[in-house]
Design a binder for these strands. Structure first.
Lengths: 259, 259
DNA sequence: GCTCTCGTTTCAGATAATGAACCCAGGTTT
DNA sequence: AAACCTGGGTTCATTATCTGAAACGAGAGC
């Protein structure tokens, strides 16, 4: 593994629950020597990717990330471009709509729009990568990957896939079957596999070269997501996915069959 | 220079004018060999920091930056915490208020609030690092650094400091003199040195350990920024800076003298 | 006072990085 | 049609950077 990979992997250790990372803790989490980690942190700090917290002597994410993220949005305005489509989708379904990007075997939320249609709504954040096997967006992306890529993406996990709720599928075979069903149907549906009592419905989004590059999804409290409602949302996310794909410069989208 | 430093320096090459970076161009800009640069880009791409543009075969900033920036704001909510103070400052002065963070010898905008008080206003972005010598925020930061650190921060530039407008100071001695005046006055003032016809007024912001960690500033069209108005804004940014510093956990702020 | 944990430094040996040279492809010029 | 130019990509002998075990100092807890 390259030195650059080792250094950047440190940034993936930060989570909402782990806002500050200390040296010895990073050593335990990564299995690397403290001397090496200190050099990685020093380089990241020189470039503003992390900054030292004087009180805890640990590091937290730094300001260069804020600047570069703003620059990315300025020069590749996915969030603002998709916002109109997401608002329309949120209005139409009365639920939370979001767009995720698939890269580096990760699914990352890019934009989220909540609906005011109900007093309760699903809250989503931009901060955490989404698991492919446990989310509707992930299943939607898997459904549009070639078979070999699906296996490669899931199959590397030792000890089964991560469990998030009691209903999370942890067997790769079951997830692949679910992806196959989504491929036929044109959209993916998951119920409480990532967050309890939340149903997700998602369709894949395609890029300029026709490759799947993300997904557009609606998340609703399961109490509001009966079979008829899910079918209705499914149609809406497929339509929205076509529009987002066109915005990304996708050619004629792959043919879809109604569920 | 470490390999990590070399790789991360590539990310600093991206600007609003240079949204996509191609291999040979990066080689020209950095003086490094294409083989090395290709390895750096590959590592950055694996981790989602850049993504390949299929049409131009260059790279652009990637989605991991969006996720990590969102995570930083979630766990270190500077933007939202400062927004109240910035809104009050924008309302009080009728101009654009912004907060910048000083790290890794760079000044990076963290939060910006514009005022609706006038039909014209100064537009600012989050995307670009600000030059220390040509902005009010930069001069404010310099004014609170020890003398040796001021020289070290400015003096490394060969061939003089960068010129942005006809009135930009490019001689380090002149910039240091300006910083000394700002130290006495408690706030910095620049007129058209970074953007033509824009006057900036800024005060330094301090962190938990008492160290200068940024600045809070107001930017106004110079036509609205006469001497009396600038003095009034100066008092307002000093007050706001004290409040932001307290929010950052700063101890008793350094004593200020009225200008 | 002793023990434990954390962060930091050192440096001989190891490994990943380096970049000159070469190749291929596409476009432009002669 | 041939030559030239530019850009992207690969190779591998050489070298610069990386590695991490060991040691140390500091602070906290018992």
């Amino acid at each position: 593994m390259s030195t650059i990979d080792k250094a950047l992997e440190l940034l993936d250790l930060f989570t909402e629950a782990r806002a500050v990372l200390r040296l010895s803790e990073a050593a335990r989490l990564t299995g690397r020597d403290k001397a090496s980690l200190l050099r990685y942190f020093a380089a990241l700090e020189r470039r503003g990717f992390v900054e030292r917290d004087s009180e805890s002597r640990g590091w937290r994410l730094g300001p260069a990330l804020v600047r570069l993220a703003a620059l990315r949005e300025t020069t590749w305005p996915v969030q603002s471009a998709a916002r109109g489509i997401l608002m329309a989708l949120a209005d139409e379904t009365g639920e939370t709509a979001h767009l995720s990007h698939f890269a580096a075997r990760q699914l990352i939320n890019l934009a989220i729009v909540e609906s005011d249609a109900h007093p309760t709504r699903v809250r989503l954040g931009l901060s955490e990568a989404l698991p492919l096997h446990a989310t509707a967006s992930g299943i939607a992306v898997l459904s549009s990957l070639p078979e070999a890529a699906r296996r490669a993406t899931l199959g590397a996990k030792r000890g089964g896939l991560a469990r998030y709720t009691a209903t999370t599928l942890t067997d790769p075979g079951e997830v692949l079957a679910q992806a196959a069903r989504a491929q036929v149907q044109g959209y993916a549906v998951v119920r409480g596999t990532f967050e309890a009592d939340v149903t997700g419905v998602a369709a894949p989004v395609f890029g300029r070269g026709g490759e799947v590059c993300g997904a557009i999804a609606v998340a609703a409290p399961s109490a509001r997501a009966g079979t008829a409602e899910v079918a209705r949302i499914g149609q809406a996310v497929m339509s929205a996915a076509v529009r987002v794909s066109h915005q990304f410069g996708a050619p004629i989208p792959p043919l879809r069959r109604d569920g």
